[in-house]
């Protein structure tokens, strides 16, 4: 290096100590922040685990398979809530994934002139900015009155299917699932759209050049190429659905026992349970709630790890 700086060149080829320092500082700074995030997560998990310890010792793994949540008897089991969390999230994904990916396809291709497309993109993203309490209110005053006759019809005509085996009573698992679907739709749509837009134009041209139609190009090239991004968006959305509290608490009915698989019945999720009971809880109940929180934590973790495996397994290299 020394020889190059000896030239009587007007250019300074040496990096100043200051820029080196900034570079190094940046590396260390980001490392520290990354570690801090991990530490924070660990500390929260430990704290929750410590508070949950009495309940863990008392109920053990039986907590996961018991649907009895009785404050009076001091008996606690979170099966109802685990079931409610999984089923509401599943309903939400079932509805939001096809629609969200559909919206993403529609908004990433040139079906619409940019003048019309841009406002729609903006509106979809705005859906994500609506506070969940507003979704809850909308669910109570608009969605549930609208859904009730549908639920009654389902129960009357398809009641032999376990999923529709109870008569709906206003709020319920299905209403919560549906509102969750609307809440996570913009996440899926926005991230999937970004993933599809990021697929190199050359691939699109290659497919068209071989005589693929627009739909063949979308389904056989663009969607597979954007798969890992889309899956990432879906996972983010699932995390949101599993943890969503306010809207679900307002719509699910908050029944702490479950006696059927019916999505028309009332239920609760782990987070709605926490929101409902924490303020007045004491003693072992607090510990049981902490245990439930830990279970939600674990559930999210399991789902994310599974998702990561799926993405690794199926994602395409670009």
């Amino acid at each position: 290096m020394a020889s190059t700086t000896d030239h009587s060149s007007p250019m300074n080829r040496k990096r100043s100590a200051a820029t080196r320092l900034i570079d190094d500082g940046f590396v260390w700074g980001t490392t520290a922040i990354a570690i801090a995030v991990g530490l924070l997560l660990a500390v929260i998990a430990l704290q929750v685990g410590e508070d949950a310890l009495p309940a863990i010792q008392k109920f053990g793994l039986g907590f996961l398979v018991s649907n009895r949540w009785s404050v009076i008897d001091g008996e606690f089991g979170a099966l109802t809530q685990i079931y409610g969390t999984l089923v509401t999230s599943f309903i939400a994904l079932l509805i939001a994934v096809p629609i969200g990916v559909g919206v993403a396809i529609f908004l990433s291709e040139d079906f619409l002139p940019p003048r019309i497309k841009q406002p729609i993109v903006f509106l979809v993203e705005l859906l994500a900015a609506i506070p969940s309490v507003v979704y809850g209110l909308w669910g109570i005053f608009v969605l549930i009155p609208f859904l009730s006759p549908i639920g009654i019809w389902l129960n009357a005509n398809l009641g032999w299917i376990p999923l529709f085996s109870t008569a709906p009573a206003g709020p319920g698992i299905y209403a919560a699932g549906l509102v969750l679907a609307i809440m996570i739709l913009p996440i899926i749509a926005a991230i999937s759209r970004d993933a599809m837009v990021a697929v190199p134009a050359e691939l699109r041209q290659a497919a068209y050049g071989l005589g693929a139609t627009r739909w063949e190009t979308i389904f056989q090239i663009l969607l597979p190429a954007g798969f890992s991004g889309i899956a990432g968006g879906v996972m983010l959305a699932l995390g949101r659905a599993m943890g969503e509290t306010m809207a679900v608490t307002m719509l699910i009915g908050n029944s702490n026992t479950i006696d059927s698989f019916s999505i028309l019945s009332q239920g609760s999720t782990v987070s709605s349970l926490l929101a409902n009971q924490f303020a007045e809880a004491g003693g072992l109940q607090v510990s049981a709630l902490m245990y439930a929180a830990l279970v939600l934590f674990g559930l999210t973790l399991v789902v994310n790890v599974l998702a990561e495996i799926v993405v690794r397994r199926f994602s395409l290299k670009l």
Binding site: E202, G209, G211, A212, L318
Partner: peptide, 20 residues
């Protein structure tokens, strides 16, 4: 045009194999 492209193939400047 789709039928035209099934008869008239194309190779591009930048190699663009599908990620398959």
């Amino acid at each position: 045009p789709v039928e035209v492209r099934r008869q008239v193939g194309m190779v591009f400047q930048k190699p663009n194999p599908f990620p398959k």
